[in-house]
Structures are given as C-alpha cells and as structure tokens.
C-alpha cells in the first residue's frame, strides 16, 4: 500500500515538474495588459482626472505610470513647483508645445531651436503661438496666473506650518513670473514609462521629441532606435511614423523620410473618421497629426522624389479628406510647375 502511495506521489511530482518546466510556453503568451487605447492612456480623461480635487490631494500617488509621468512632466518643467493647472500633455506629445491651460499662453519649444534646425513638420503644423520666453533655450520665464498646490501666505490658514512648507518645498508666488526649465531631464522617466508600458505611444512621441531637442546626431539616432521600438509594439500608430519621419529628415535622409511620411499618411487615413470630425476618439491633435502626415508625404515626394507621383498622391489624399487649403495650394503649385 505504502509502495503504491509513494509510486503515485512520484508520478504526481513528475507530472507537476514537467508541467512547471513547460509552463513558460503558455506564460509567454499571456498578455492581459496588452491592449490599445484605454482611459488611463487617453489624454482627455487623463487631463480631467488629474485636475480633480481628489487627484490634487493625492499628490504623486497614482497606480498608472502614465499618470505619474503627467505629474512628473509638470513638476520638472516648473523646477519642482506644483501648480494646480495642468499642461496640455496632448500638445506636448504632438508637437512639443507647452500649452498652459490656465491662461492659454503657450510656448512652442521648437522655437527654441535655431532656425536651421527646425524641421518642416513643425513648420507645417505649428503656428500662431504667443510666446514670451528669454533667449536662453534651457530656462525661460513665464507668467502662469494659476494657483500653486501650496497656498500663498494670504490664503493659508496654517501660520508657521504653512510658512515652513513654502520654504522647504519648491514654491514660488504664483502671481510672479516663474521659471520654465527644459524637459530633457524627463527623458529617463519616458524611458521607464515605455519600458513598463510599451503601448504608451505618447511616451515614445515625447521622448523622441526631447531627444531631437539635443540637436546631436548620437541622440537623433537614439531617437530613431527608440521610435523603432515603439513601432515594433504599435505597428499601426501613424504618429510614431510621422515623428520618425521628422527625425530622419533632420538627419538629411530624405528618401527614408519620404517613405515614412507616406506610411504615416496611409495609416492615418485608415484611422481617420470619413469626415475627420473631432470626437473623443479622434481629437484635434489626431486630426492635426494626420493632416501633417499627408502634407509632408506630398511635400517630400515633390521635393525629393517625383513631382508627378506627388501630384497623384496629393489628389488621392485630397479626395479622401475632402478639403485642405495647404494641400490644394501644393497641387496648384505642382500643376503650374508642370505647365
């Protein structure tokens, strides 16, 4: 009886051991966190929830890396000072623009680059921003007009405790102009963010944007590697191709940039609602990026490829998106050139 029992136990142990040994074959295919979209990654809902009273009280305590990054971005760009207003994170990821929702003053960080370093992508889809920063491209002054999380002496009931709080923590009187520092120091956070959530497209976009800001070939190559990783995990993201196109163009690799813009435009058209109507799923920035991809696909084809092909694709894209002044002007130019 005992021998039978031990034999049975031995067989069970062997079975369990084999199951365990083979288990990674199943485990490696388990990916419950692998999905596209979701409220935690959505810019609009992220903005709304992080501006709520509950979120302000919780400070940096968040369960999602995406939200943590949202807070870190604000703190780093404001030298650690916590404000109640939030940056327009969507704009930051889309075109490297810091938009302060508090007073609707925004600063296009691309403008901080010398003229010859700015690329066409930003020229094409970024204009008319009021900016008032100093010449220094690392730090500039900015007037917020929004409250800080730590209140001013006038609004604070805590007396000495409040005074100590203001002295120990990074704090500035919100009525006075304050510092905006560069976001390059945020890069490690974006690296961590995309490592822990490779489907966070914004993380790749903003990280690549800041890398481009270094204006050095080594970092531009790093940005391309970074975006390649993003594309591997998110092959349908037209924004990543658009950003990679921008960086490739900065490296004067025109032929590849042209192909990337084309790919981006094709993907964008597949995702874009037929009328391009702005909705929760198709934001203003989605539309802007899609149009930029289309325009740049035509523009680079015209400049570095074949004008006839450029004209063909311009007409095809225009037919799909119905109307676009810049594209129509390009078509007119190409027709007149042809004649």
């Amino acid at each position: 009886m005992k021998i039978m029992d031990s034999k049975r136990e031995g067989a069970f142990a062997l079975f369990l051991f084999l199951l365990f040994l083979a288990s990674p074959a199943v485990t490696m295919r388990l990916n419950p966190k692998n999905y596209e979209g979701g409220r935690s990654r959505d810019e609009r809902t992220r903005h709304i929830r992080n501006k709520s009273a509950a979120a302000l009280i919780l400070g940096e305590i968040r369960s999602s890396m995406s939200d943590i990054m949202f807070i870190k971005t604000e703190l780093y760009l404001h030298s650690g000072v916590a404000y109640k207003l939030n940056l327009d994170y969507d704009a930051l990821s889309s075109k490297g623009t810091v938009v302060e929702k508090g007073d609707q003053q925004d600063v296009n960080l691309e403008q901080l680059l010398p003229e010859d370093q700015r690329n066409h992508a930003e020229h094409e889809h970024d204009h008319d921003h009021a900016h008032h920063h100093a010449d220094d491209d690392k730090i500039h002054f900015h007037c917020e007009g929004a409250d800080t999380v730590i209140p001013t002496r006038k609004k604070d009931f805590r007396g000495i405790i409040g005074e100590l709080h203001r002295r120990v923590k990074p704090w500035q009187d919100p009525s006075k102009p304050h510092l905006h520092t560069s976001g390059e120091e945020l890069l490690p956070w974006y690296r961590l963010m995309t490592l822990s959530d490779p489907h966070n497209i914004r993380g790749y976009m903003i990280g690549a944007w800041w890398l481009k800001h270094f204006k050095k070939e080594a970092q531009l190559q790093e940005a391309i590697k970074f975006l390649d990783e993003g594309i591997r995990y998110n092959p349908d993201s037209y924004q990543l191709y658009l950003m990679k196109g921008n960086i490739t163009l900065s490296l004067d690799n025109h032929r590849e940039a042209k192909a990337l813009y084309r790919k981006s435009a094709d993907l964008a058209i597949r995702k874009r609602p037929p009328d391009g109507k702005i909705s929760r799923d198709w934001t203003h920035y989605n539309e802007e990026d899609a149009l930029a991809a289309i325009r740049l696909a035509v523009f680079t084809e015209k400049e570095y490829g074949d004008v006839k092909t450029a004209l063909d694709i311009a007409r095809r894209y225009l037919e799909i998106i119905n109307s676009d002044l810049i594209l129509e002007r390009q078509i007119q130019q190409m027709i007149s050139q042809d004649q």
Partner: peptide
C-alpha cells in the same frame, strides 16, 4: 467633502 466632479474622476477613484 470635495465631491466627485465627473465620471472620469469616479473612474480614477474606482481604480485607486
């Protein structure tokens, strides 16, 4: 005391 301003905040608190 502070209230839940919108469904997005409710969702955030539910997650938390």
């Amino acid at each position: 005391l502070v209230g839940i301003e919108n469904p997005e905040t409710a969702n955030f608190l539910q997650n938390l």
